[in-house]
Amino acid sequence: MIPATLAATAADPDVLFSIQLTLRVMAVAIPLLFVFGVPLGYLLGRGRGRLVAVLDLTVSLPLVLPPMAVGFFLLLLLGRNGLLGGPLGKFAGIEIIFGFPGLVVAAVVSGLPLMVRPVQAAVRGDLTRFVELSAVLGKSSTETFVRVVLPHCRRSVAAGMFLAVGRALGEVGVSLLLGGDIIGRTNTVSLEIYNAVFSGQYDRAGYLAGLLCLVSLALTWLLKWTGRG
């Protein structure tokens, strides 16, 4: 790709839109991954019983099921006539599919298992003693979580976050079904690569694929740096 073409592609409003949309999706998905992923990892790592086992399996499903299948089931659940989507639209006026919320759900669902697993592993073992110690020292569960659990597994939280963001950035299947790949509305970078290839715009596809690779490499480096600490 010659520099002139690269510059033209980078300045293309459609390309810029897909990058901005992806950044907006990640800006909402990252806090959600943290808010749901860390307590869920803590619960799955320390909890016992059937309910925890069922929850563990449910969280893991996006890792083992084909993304298209996950997207399809979420579409049924969150669609206008879905079990959850129906009441949400009817009573709260919230429409999830074929819009920004659908892309956020896709990013969170696909990234969550990778966010949860490292935290789940970190809260097993030594941490039990520290949690017990904190309780004996008079601290509440919330204070223990904030002052002991989070600092103890901060590296695992960071590692999980990098993995989850990497996965969510490259997500196509679930985003396609929940977002609809509507040009100028829900075409994230990954979907825009798909669109570009099918319309023969290889320069655009190459530029965006290179961009995703750079971000992924940066995340890999951060992951290694986190583990080294």
């Binding site: 030594d126 110690l133 004996v136 509440s140 103890h152």
Partner: peptide, 20 residues
Amino acid sequence: LPARRRDIGLVFQDYSLFPH
């Protein structure tokens, strides 16, 4: 009465100080 309300001090063999 939960552990945190018993007003006791506890020392384990290991893991008695928070490492962070």
